[in-house]
Design a protein around this nucleic acid. Structure first.
Length: 260
DNA sequence: AATACCGTCAACCGCTGGACA
DNA sequence: CTGTCCAGCGGTTGACGGTAT
C-alpha cells in the first residue's frame, strides 16, 4: 500500500538534493502560469528532472508567494507554544494558524529553538509541564498562559458545543476531537448572517478566506472534553466572552457566527 | 590555521488515509 | 472488497555556516 516515493523513471535519473535557481524558476513559472493540478505531472510539464513530491515540497516550503520570510515574532513564538500544548506535533495544524508559515518551518523552529527555550524555563517541551525537580523555579518563570489561552463558557452562543476557547493572540477556538485527532477550529464569521443547525455534535474547521472565518457543523461522535478539560484547560484560565473576543479582535458593532 | 562541534534549515523518506477503478 | 494512485504529514537526514578548541 501507499505510494512509492520519488523512484526514478527507468530512462532518466531524477535529481535530488538542493534546488538550483533555474529549477526554482521553472517550477515557479509553471505553477504561476498553469496552477498545480496533479503534482506527479508537474515535473514533466515544467521540464524538471524531479519527482512530483519534491516539486510539491519546494513549492509549499519555499516558492509559494504568500510565504512569510524571516524570523518568528514573539507573538508567533507564543502561539506555537500554546498550540503545541494542545495539538502536540501536528505541525500542519499548527502552521494553519500561522499565516505564511509552513509546517516544516515551524517544526524546525520548534526542534532547534523552542524546545531548548522551554527546557531553560524548566518546562518539559513534550508535556508542557514543569520538569520534575524543577517545579518551584519553573512555576515562577512560566509565563502567564491565561493571557494566551483561556476558557470561556458561552453556552448560549454555542449551546451544543462545550469546548470553546479564547486565545488573546488567535481569537476564539473550539476543539474538534473527531476520531483520534483533536484539532482547533477558529470561530468568527463576524458580520455574516447566522443560521443554526441541530444535527451535529461537534465542529469542523472550514476554510478561512479573507477576514471571514466560518465553521462547519459536523456530525461526529463526541466533543473533546476529556483531553482538554483534563489536561489543558484547568482553572488557570480565565473566562472571556464573545464580546471581549470581538473587542480584542477590533470588531465594531454586531458580529455573528455562520453555521452550515 | 585546522578541525571538531553545534545549530539551523532544506529536503528526503516512509507512512497514512482518501479517492477511485 | 481490494488494489492503486495520490496528497499530505511527521520524523529524519545531511549540507552548510558559525563558533569553540
Amino acid at each position: 500500500m501507499g505510494h512509492q516515493s520519488c523512484i526514478a523513471a527507468p530512462k532518466q535519473k531524477l535529481r535530488k538534493g538542493l534546488w538550483s535557481p533555474e529549477e526554482d524558476e521553472k517550477l515557479y513559472n509553471h505553477i504561476i502560469r498553469y496552477g498545480v493540478g496533479c503534482w506527479s505531472s508537474v515535473p514533466k510539464l515544467a521540464g524538471l528532472q524531479r519527482c512530483g513530491k519534491s516539486c510539491r515540497l519546494r513549492w509549499i516550503n519555499y516558492l509559494r508567494p504568500d510565504l512569510k520570510r524571516g524570523s518568528f515574532s514573539q507573538q508567533e513564538e507564543d502561539l506555537i507554544i500554546s498550540l503545541h500544548e494542545i495539538l502536540g506535533n501536528r505541525w500542519s495544524q499548527i502552521a494553519s494558524q500561522l499565516p505564511g508559515r509552513t509546517d516544516n518551518e515551524i517544526k524546525n523552529f520548534w526542534n532547534s529553538s523552542l524546545k531548548k527555550k522551554l527546557r531553560q524555563r524548566g518546562i518539559d517541551p513534550t508535556t508542557h509541564k514543569p520538569i520534575a525537580g524543577d517545579a518551584t523555579e519553573s512555576q515562577e518563570e512560566k509565563p502567564d498562559i491565561s493571557t494566551i489561552i483561556s476558557s470561556p463558557v458561552d453556552q448560549q452562543v454555542f449551546p451544543n458545543f462545550e469546548q470553546q476557547y479564547f486565545t488573546a493572540s488567535m481569537g476564539f477556538y473550539g476543539v474538534n476531537n473527531n476520531s483520534s485527532r483533536s484539532e482547533l477550529c477558529e470561530y468568527g464569521g463576524y458580520g455574516e448572517s447566522s443560521s443554526n443547525s441541530t444535527g451535529g455534535s461537534n465542529w469542523n474547521c472550514s476554510s478561512v478566506s479573507g477576514n471571514h472565518e466560518v465553521l462547519n457543523w459536523d456530525s461526529v461522535t463526541h466533543i473533546g472534553n476529556t483531553i482538554l478539560e483534563e489536561e489543558h484547560f484547568e482553572p488557570k484560565f480565565a473566562a472571556h466572552s464573545w464580546q471581549e473576543h470581538a473587542e480584542i479582535r477590533g470588531f465594531d458593532g454586531d458580529f455573528d457566527v455562520e453555521f452550515f
